[in-house]
Design a protein around this nucleic acid. Structure first.
Lengths: 228, 228
DNA sequence: CCTCCCTATCGGGAAATCCCCTATACCCCT
DNA sequence: AGGGGTATAGGGGATTTCCCGATAGGGAGG
């Protein structure tokens, strides 16, 4: 039915071609106009899902892909990984409506060279595109700050899961937190002082670089849900 | 600093003026172009939050407002209610990225005369705008189907999810909890007292039959993850 | 119209938790 | 012998939770 993944404009060697991947037609439209009105850029194609995106890359050979994180089927992250495998030379700029650092981190780890949010001013987006095209990186300020502090905090980050750094006791508490236990409940269950549990919680937050009890709980829940 | 809520183009009596309310510049851009290229429509202003929106309505007197549900501060639902109170004659078309019926229902109950998703084709959006402008209603097909089936099933056993029993405000808070916001943060974001947020939390716990803050957070996280 | 219930909004105050610092007592390792 | 990580725990102030209202507006029902 759909005939989206195709060229927008005839070849123009003096402009860099951008492929837009987003499942919201309105966003595509906005981005397209934004890009096309620049003198050195042009939208060479659009795609609304991962499959179309891969097709479009193959056919249109863009200089850059702007990828929304939340697509319909395959998540944008998967698409980015795929692109990195099959077209390692193609730089990817991630577009997202989430301001949470989690997505930015994953996107960059997956191989994206930039991360901007839809909340940001349009000029920022164009700036980001240019940066990434010129081989640099671009990350939104707020997100960048979060990530930097994380990197500074944990220099010994080897690819392995940071949960591995927890001691046995700490891991046990971490699991219980994720399972919904409160501090006092854990103390009773483990026959420990509430204070001890609090210390464990503090250690866990430190090792996993979590800022408050809230994030600790969220992380624990996600961990438990993802098992292992 | 901001100078967003202002007229786009000089008065043109033969075109109907549309006000765009969305906190994503890119989306605004896309929508604006979409609307402006129609012969009988024009974008008379843009706003990125509820306050700007109300100002813009007052000053620009649009024929229609297109409102995104998820804004920065006050949710779109609140804005719609406000509009209905202060400008009862102004029709509102709701724009959303959620395909779940929960929001559609609430938006319409709040006074919106239409509901379209960002995933939809751009022509649909234009169609929706025209319909609403001409006094009719417009609801996306899928959403309409869900709502109809709900009506058919009868209000007796709408036990789909107890989340439906939450008030708009409560649901908003519930979402934020699931997104990782703390009480204090929510209070700031929504411009409410911490005490008010606490009350909402209490009501949510009551309605959803949750025992403590812990379980509330877990439930909210799961719900938000399942929503998307 | 009056009453009852729901919703939205806030406050007081006690109890529970969180958070930062400190402390002891093991181990293990060098 | 000393350093580092782990298990355990307390002190004390800062926040949050939780249970009590309380006010004001809007509908539903009588």
């Amino acid at each position: 039915m759909k005939k989206k993944a195709r060229a927008q404009t005839p070849q123009q060697a003096d402009k860099r071609g951008v492929l837009i991947v987003d499942d919201h037609p309105i966003v595509r439209q906005g981005l397209a106009q934004l890009i096309d009105q620049e003198h050195d850029l042009r939208v060479c194609g659009q795609a609304e899902d991962a499959y179309e995106a891969m097709q479009a890359i193959k056919e249109l050979n863009p200089d850059l892909a702007v990828v929304d994180i939340s697509l319909k089927d395959t998540s944008g992250i998967e698409l980015i990984k795929d692109i990195k495998v099959h077209f390692p030379g193609l730089p990817v700029l991630t577009l997202s409506m989430h301001d949470e650092g989690v997505y930015a981190e994953r996107a960059l780890r997956a191989g994206a060279r930039g991360y901007v949010m839809k909340q940001e001013a349009t000029e920022r987006v164009v700036t980001a595109i240019r940066r990434v095209l010129s081989g640099e990186m671009y990350v939104s300020e707020g997100v960048a700050a979060k990530m930097v502090s994380k990197l500074v905090a944990g220099p010994a980050q080897t690819g392995g899961s940071p949960v591995d750094r927890l001691s046995d006791r700490e891991l046990e508490v971490f699991r219980l937190i994720g399972a919904g236990y409160g501090t006092r409940e854990m103390a009773e269950k483990l026959h420990l002082s509430v204070k001890t549990i609090e210390t464990y919680r503090a250690h866990i937050k430190e090792k996993l670089d979590l800022i408050d009890a809230n994030e600790l709980l969220r992380t624990a829940i996600n961990w438990v849900n993802a098992e292992r």
